[in-house]
Design a protein around this nucleic acid. Structure first.
Length: 720
DNA sequence: CATCACGCTGTTTTT
DNA sequence: CAGCGTGATG
């Protein structure tokens, strides 16, 4: 515990006002880098110092990581107990409450949470049901269907409105899609399933219809704080309204210029509406920026001047600096990667550290080329955003075996695990599930299924696993271990990158060992999964570069930021400039990325190399610079270009070997390697050959780097 | 049920 | 271009 905090010395006037405001609603409009996190942390400390029990403070943040950071900070300031503050995302809070009260809305407490791919799978099954009748056109893909449903829920509009705006091509079958939405809703109810949207939707319903629950929660959480309020949608805003309806101790903090989640219904107008719902709200603006130098802010201010919808605020700083943001036009995507790497190497020579540098981009795949170049030069990095560990097929397969233990009705998981078996496809799995439900033999009586004996043997094994897993008090890591043991033969059969995936199953076991109950483990995994960077850093080394999607970089900061901006980053080209609404969001996205930088900002774009050209698919794009780079006011940036004739010798590829063909001529024949051979790799050092995938790809396990997939066509691996 | 050839379609960001 | 769904065949 540190001494008494002298708030008035440490905080500026506006921050102090926000921190020490007495009870009642508060809206904080906080520009980028204006000490938003700091203000929230001090507010927690202030409340705790005044005797508010930490558990009665509810801090809703965008990610668990953000919550932890804030609470650690508050804990350091005053009192360790600050870590006990209740926190999480809207979805995780909703889930916790629904686990207690699901009966009120006609669900059982053991409902299963569906992720996006579960939703798509359910949709796929239902499409064939609805699809029976004659249709004037082909039915949309299950992912499109899920998108439409989700958008309609999150924007709280009718299906037809979403479709008019975003999917006019499917309007002719609007009625069928509406019917299907009905069917989907019934399906979820029947099988005790909730998707992400249901969690907040039913949470709101629960609050709306039950005064006792409103009171219970108002009592449990007497002070409510919401970070990143600009990213909430109207359902979430309603939830806040209900939670705060009796005590009105609600503080929301946000920045309309950083609203980049409209695609999932986020509506920064919530910020304008807050004073409408809470008329006595105090409004506080934080405009002093403590992060970036003036030239960077001059650019970001100029950028936002082009946006039409905004709360007017202007950031200023006392941090001077003469270095103007730089834009670099490169020839190809490959040049872009080479430029970034060379510049990073130069910065390291100047004594800066990798931890101080981040490369941000719009979409996860935009960094593929860079990842290859970094690996070639052995620059360690961790990547955030994009592909999710939890969504990979092998993890979902394994978890399906555990999910049916928790929720016997979980038809999706049953289907998934049954279909792993030989001779069981969509039809037969459905038949087995129907039979099990009718006979009430879930979950361990699978082997009694009377149809056919081709699959008998497999079902007996499965039944053994199920009865082992059903034992009371089984520790979660033990359960995951049993399931992994059962699943491994399927894994070997199904995937050719078997060793990597098996390693990840091991990881899952050790994650499970941190939990007391299986249910808690599964809930946590679906809602607040651990950060799962694509790691290409030496094991155990601390200094590494960060690659991240802009969305995942929110709230963080680095000294030096590279922004990689691929040609407009969207498809098709002719749509690029048409939709003003999304153009503004792109501006805000660039704004978020740029304001992460403390003192150096470099924006890189390729002139060509994208996936499409003005005529359509295939070939290289040969347009000029990205429209957003072009949109930057020229007098506040410096422009240079870079082109390299660089062709790397002895290229290697990562598991995203996709781009091998862009990497120069093959290095020659490397045959003669066998699993078990020791090799010496130019960038990764000593390794052991693990397994071949086809003729030209080989998996090698390196001491310092873990398992890598190498492309023999481009790598000479010498036996040692 | 599994496999394969064919034709169609088209973005990305996250809970 | 490439991944996905579809429909025909083993």
């Amino acid at each position: 515990m540190s001494g008494k905090i002298r708030y008035e010395k440490i905080l500026n006037k506006a921050q102090l006002f926000a921190v020490t405001a007495l009870d009642g609603p508060i809206l904080v409009i906080a520009g980028a880098g204006s000490g938003k996190t700091r203000t929230l942390a001090y507010r927690v400390a202030w409340l705790v110092e005044r005797g508010v029990p930490p558990k009665e403070i509810l801090l809703l943040t965008f990610t668990r990581k953000a919550a932890k950071e804030m609470l650690d900070r508050a804990a350091r300031l005053t009192n360790r107990r600050c870590r006990e503050v209740s926190g999480g995302t809207f979805h995780s809070l909703a889930q916790r409450v629904l686990r207690e009260k699901a009966e009120r809305i006609g669900f059982s407490r053991s409902f299963t949470i569906m992720d996006r791919s579960d939703m798509e799978e359910a949709a796929r099954g239902l499409i064939s049901e609805v699809d029976g009748e004659r249709m004037p056109m082909r039915f949309p893909k299950s992912s499109t269907i899920s998108n439409i449903f989700s958008k309609a829920v999150n924007m709280e509009t009718h299906l037809s409105e979403v479709m008019e705006i975003e999917y006019p091509q499917f309007l002719p079958i609007l009625q069928h899609i509406e019917r299907m939405l009905q069917v989907y809703k019934e399906y979820k109810r029947r099988n005790n399933l909730m998707d992400y949207d249901d969690l907040i939707l039913f949470f709101r319903l629960l609050l709306k219809e039950n005064e006792d629950i409103r009171l219970l929660l108002a009592n449990r959480y007497r002070y409510i704080m919401v970070d990143e309020y600009q990213d909430t949608n109207t359902i979430q805003a309603d939830i806040i309204r209900y939670l705060g309806s009796s005590h009105k101790n609600v503080m929301v903090v946000g920045d309309d210029s950083q609203s980049i989640y409209s695609f999932r219904g986020a509506n920064f107008r919530n910020m304008f509406d807050f004073p409408v719902y809470f008329p006595e709200a105090k409004i506080i603006k934080l405009e002093e920026n403590y992060r970036s130098t003036q030239p960077i802010l001059t650019m970001t201010n100029a950028l936002m001047d082009q946006a039409s919808q905004k709360y007017t605020k202007c950031l200023f700083t006392r941090r001077s600096g003469s270095e103007v943001p730089l834009t670099i036009g490169t020839g190809t995507e490959r040049d872009q990667a080479v430029y970034v790497c060379r510049t990073i190497e130069a910065l390291l020579d100047e004594g800066r550290s990798l931890k101080d540098i981040a490369v941000l981009f719009r979409a996860a795949y935009h960094s593929f080329e860079l990842e290859l170049e970094l690996a070639r030069r052995a620059i360690p990095f961790a990547k955030y955003g994009g592909f999710k560990f939890m969504e990979s097929a092998h993890i979902k397969d394994l978890l399906a075996h555990l999910r049916v233990i928790i929720n016997k009705q979980d038809i999706l998981s049953w289907g998934r695990l049954l279909r792993l078996m030989k001779n069981i496809g969509p039809r037969k799995s459905q038949a087995i599930i129907d039979w099990m439900k009718k006979e009430d033999v879930l979950p361990a009586g699978v082997d009694k299924w009377p149809g056919g004996n081709k699959e008998k043997e497999g079902l007996v094994e499965l039944a053994k696993l199920m009865s082992a897993l059903s034992k009371a008090n089984l520790r979660p890591d033990k359960a995951v271990g049993l399931a992994a043991e059962y699943y491994t033969p399927f894994l070997r059969e199904r995937f050719d990158d078997f060793p990597r995936r098996q390693l990840e199953l091991e990881q899952l076991i050790s994650m499970a060992s941190r939990y007391r109950s299986l249910r808690a483990f599964l809930d946590d995994l679906s809602l607040e999964p651990p950060a799962s960077p694509v790691d290409v850093r030496p094991l155990g080394k601390e200094d590494y570069l960060t690659l991240s999607t802009i969305h995942s970089a929110k709230g963080l900061e680095w000294g030096i930021i590279f922004i990689i901006w691929l040609v407009d980053g969207r498809f098709p080209p002719e749509k690029s400039f048409l939709n003003t609404e999304s153009l503004e969001e792109e501006l805000r996205l660039l704004y978020v990325a740029a304001t992460r930088a403390k003192d150096k900002l470099i924006m890189v774009y390729p002139g060509q190399g994208a996936l499409y050209n003005s005529e359509g698919w295939g070939g290289n794009y040969r347009g000029g610079p990205s429209s957003f780079i072009r949109a930057l006011p020229q007098d506040v940036i410096e422009h240079r270009s870079f082109a390299s004739s660089y062709i790397s010798p002895g290229d290697t590829t990562l598991s995203s070997g996709l781009f091998a063909e862009s990497m120069g001529p093959p290095a020659g024949d490397s045959s003669g390697l066998k699993p078990g051979d020791r090799i010496n790799h130019p960038a990764f050092g000593m390794g052991v050959v693990a397994r071949f995938q086809g003729e030209d790809r080989v998996e090698v396990i390196f001491k310092d780097w873990g398992t890598k997939l190498l492309h023999l066509g481009y790598t000479s691996l010498e036996k040692v």
